[in-house]
Every structure is written in C-alpha cells, then in structure tokens.
Amino acid sequence: MEALKNLQKSIVKSQIWKSIFRVGIPTDNRKRALAMLGNVVLHLHPIKVKKSGLRMSYTWCMGGTAFFLFLVETITGILLMFYYRPTVEYAYFDMVDLREAVAFGIMRELHRWGAHAMVISVWLHMFRVFMTGSYKPPREFNWNVGVILLVLTLLLSFTGYLLPWDQLAIWAITVGSNMARATPVLGHEGPGAALLQIGGTKLIHVGSDARFGLIAGRTIGNGTLIRFYVLHCVAIPFVAACLIAVHFWRVRKDGGISGPM
C-alpha cells in the first residue's frame, strides 16, 4: 500500500507528468479555475456556470449528446474507412466483410445507430432551445448556426445512406435526389428551366442540371458513390466541425447557457 502511494507520488511529481498536467486534481477554487483555463478540452467551458443552466431538467443534455455522437461518428467512421472502398464493384462486399469478417464487427452498427441517435438528439436540442425561448436576443445568430448544423446533420446522414450500395441505399438516394430535377430554373424539369436557353439551345437539360451536378451522371452510379463518399467523409464533417466551433464560441460569448434575463 505504502509502495503504491509512493509510486503515485513519484509519477505525479515527475517532470513528464507535470509538463502535461499543469494543475493537479483541483482541490481549491484557484485550482478549479486554473484547470478550466489550462486545458484545451476543458476550456470550452467557462470557469463558473449558472446553477439553473447546470440542471439536466433544464438542458436535457441534448446539445452535449449531439456533440458526443458527432465524435462517436467521427471515430467509428475513420475506423470504417480502413476497410471500405467506394467503388461500385467493392462497396457492397466490403460492407458484408465489415459485418461478417472484421473483428469486433459492430463498428458499422455503432456508426449507423449513432447517426439515427444524432438526428433525434439534434431535433430535441432544437426543441429544448425553442421551448426555453433561448433563441431570443442576444442568441439569434447562434440559433441560425444551429439550424445550419441541423441541416448538415441531415445531409451527413443522407450522404452516408448511399455508401452500403444495397437496394435500400440506391433507391432511397434515387427518390431523394430526383427532387433536384424539379429545382426551379436549375433543374431540367423545374419551372422556369426553359427560360435559360440561347438561340433554341437549352442550357438546362438532363446532362447539365442541378441533379447532374449532385450525382455526377444521368443515373446513380460510380460517380455518385465517390461523390457522396467524399461529401460524407470529408467535406460536410469539415464544415460541420467549423460551425460547431462557432456554435460553442457563441454560446460563451452570448452569455453562456441561457437563463432568465
């Protein structure tokens, strides 16, 4: 027992340990404040919070849950990328492998169920913010950032839906992307598309309209798969991560977790 305590002491007092953790376990108020200021993860938080804003009965912990699930999706997503090849030939069979042959074959499940849970928790976070009137001044801008994050969450989930390349995937994306045909002016079956023509040559047709740009072809195919893969794994997560940073920053700058004015 004594030996263990000595070992702990020598670790905590070592130069390596001290170089990483500047402040030990906080025992007084000064150290509690320093712990928040000195740690890059913890400094997302203020040093002190309103007692009312701390209550789970008030926040439902939904924003935090959504962020946590975003992290879960990032980590499981990176793991899945080690086995997944985004081409029509391999995509489906890599899915089968992920399910049958890969060790700890629940990564795909974690990723998929995490995505469902993330969508629901983002909705509920918005619902809570509405019900407490927390979008009111001075938080109007942050509500807007939140709405964009909600849309990005749905887009992340939608682009990921195609990747298994099974019947469920391609038909859901067929139905979902076909609406782009009918985009006003920019879709070849949308109102106003006929206006864009030069001397009888149509500028907007099946090979040049909004849907063509979205799925990179006239039908869902290899171009669509690689396009959705890049959007799902890199482009949208990148934008979402930036906006999450803005969202958190503005929570702090607009007065912390909302409370009665």
Partner: peptide
C-alpha cells in the same frame, strides 16, 4: 420561475459540470 431562483447562483465547472 424555477430557473430564476437559481440563475444568480454560480457554480464552479469543476467538478459539477465536468463530471456530469
């Protein structure tokens, strides 16, 4: 309101918020 009665109270983030 319930929130108002507690909003004046400020609590240290460590340990309450971090641990929850």
């Amino acid at each position: 309101t319930f929130e108002k009665s507690e909003s004046e109270d400020r609590i240290f983030t460590w340990p309450d918020l971090v641990f929850s």
